[in-house]
Every structure is written in structure tokens, then in C-alpha cells.
């Protein structure tokens, strides 16, 4: 009887995966096209910033498009994780736990990019690898919070407890982000001039002229990254579903 149930489940899942496969493929192709277009726009189509004269600075300015977009994606991932964590605690549906894990894993990857590319931008522009600029600092704190989440999950065996603790932690971590943001901004504004660039950082958005084409490029990049995020989420959640099916199959074989 168990086998029968399993077989019917198998049929259902293969049917689902064939119809879902095309969805995944469509999403993948669309996000691939958008990302390549975003790359073209950021590197070639967008004009040079007018007021940056040093060539090193002018080139480095183009890092900004993907840097800002990844930061946006990272924060989006964080917000999604917090919302689905609430949903998990309320409804106790496994799917929300998968969403949270997928979102945080993707957010972690993109925050890594934000920090590294921010550092690579700071070097030619401010002539230091690292400044305690509010944006850079908050990204790093988010990265650390994400790492805590992944490590917490890794240390718990019971799947139900893993999901519950993960949701509680993700929620508390998300409360800490706005407070961190405030604290770090005040820290810089009240305590200026240790690292002079830290002051410019607040105006860094406006410190090169945002001409119309620069703006268009940035908006396009943000849209492309959002589509990229949706695609990654789709595949990561699929993966998590597979993982749980394998786990339950193993359980069933062991304890029959």
C-alpha cells in the first residue's frame, strides 16, 4: 500500500516536474537575456560620468550599476525571508521554510558580491580598500547575520525544530537591521573625519551627475537583478523540495 502511494506520488511529481520544467526554462532564459543586456548597458551603453576625470575613477564608476543592484537584491532577499518566516510561524507550512532558506542563501551570495565590489570601487575612488562607510558596514552586518542563520540551521538535526528556530532567528535579525542602519549613520555623522571619504559617502550617489542614461541603466539593472532573483528562488525552492523528498524516501525505506 505504501508503495502504491509512493508510486502515485511519483507520477504526480514527474507530471509536475515536466510542466514545471518549461516554467523553469522560460524563467532561466528570460533572466539570462536580461542579465546580458544589463551587462551591456552597464559596460558599454551607459555614458561616462561627466565630473569624474581620472580614468581609473571613471571606469570604476561602472561597478556601481551591478553593485547597487546586488545590494537591492540582497535586501529584497532579506525582506522576503522575514515575511515568509512570519508566514511559517503562523501557518507551519513547510513551503515557507523552504522560501526562507532559499532567499537567505541567495541573499548571502549577493551580499558577498556587494562587499567585494564595494571594496574594489573604494580603492580607485577613495584610495582605500575599506572604509566604515554606512552602506558598506550595513552590508557586512547583513552578511554576518545571514551566516549566523546558515550555521544555526546546519547545527540542528530535527527538521521541525530547524524550521522553527530558523524562522525565529530570521525575524529577530530583520528587526536588528533598521536599528543597525540608524546606529551606523549616526556613528559616522557624529564622528567625522577619521576617514575623510566616509563623509563623502553620504553624497556619493549624487557626487557624479546622474544623467538620464545613467539612471535608465541603473533601473534596468535593478529590474534584471529582480528577475534573476525570482529565477534563482524558483530553482532553489525546487531543489529544497527534492531534498525533502529524498529525506522522506530514505526515512520510509529505513523504518518500514
Amino acid at each position: 500500500m505504501a508503495t502504491k502511494a509512493m508510486l502515485s506520488q511519483q507520477e504526480k511529481s514527474t507530471a509536475a516536474s515536466t510542466s514545471a520544467f518549461s516554467w523553469g526554462a522560460i524563467l532561466t532564459v528570460i533572466s539570462g537575456i536580461f542579465m546580458l543586456a544589463a551587462l551591456y548597458m552597464a559596460l558599454v551603453w551607459a555614458p561616462d560620468a561627466l565630473n569624474l576625470t581620472a580614468p581609473a575613477e571613471r571606469y570604476a564608476q561602472r561597478i556601481f550599476y551591478f553593485h547597487v543592484s546586488s545590494a537591492w537584491l540582497g535586501f529584497l532577499a532579506f525582506i522576503v525571508a522575514a515575511v515568509v518566516s512570519i508566514l511559517y510561524l503562523v501557518t507551519r507550512k513547510d513551503i515557507w521554510d523552504m522560501w526562507a532558506l532559499a532567499s537567505i542563501e541567495i541573499g548571502l551570495a549577493f551580499f558577498t558580491m556587494v562587499i567585494i565590489s564595494g571594496s574594489l570601487w573604494a580603492k580607485p575612488t577613495w584610495n582605500v580598500w575599506w572604509t566604515w562607510d554606512p552602506r558598506l558596514t550595513i552590508s557586512t552586518i547583513c552578511w554576518l547575520l545571514y551566516i549566523g542563520y546558515i550555521m544555526l540551521r546546519g547545527a540542528i538535526d530535527n527538521p521541525d525544530r530547524r524550521a522553527r528556530f530558523g524562522a525565529v532567528y530570521a525575524l529577530l535579525a530583520s528587526f536588528s537591521v533598521p536599528l543597525n542602519w540608524m546606529a551606523i549613520r549616526w556613528w559616522r555623522t557624529i564622528h567625522p573625519a577619521v576617514v575623510a571619504p566616509g563623509n563623502n559617502a553620504d553624497e556619493s550617489m549624487g557626487s557624479f551627475g546622474m544623467s538620464a542614461n545613467i539612471q535608465t541603466t541603473l533601473i534596468f539593472c535593478v529590474v534584471a537583478f529582480t528577475i534573476f532573483y525570482i529565477t534563482l528562488m524558483y530553482h532553489r525552492i525546487k531543489l529544497e523540495q527534492l531534498q525533502r523528498r529524498v529525506d522522506s524516501l530514505k526515512q520510509r525505506l529505513l523504518y518500514r
Binding site: H67, I116, S117, W121
Partner: peptide
Amino acid sequence: IYLAAAYGVF
């Protein structure tokens, strides 16, 4: 070099 490195990292 910085531009290339940053996009390389992405």
C-alpha cells in the same frame, strides 16, 4: 583592472 575584477567577481 578594478572594473574587470568587480564584474569578474559578479
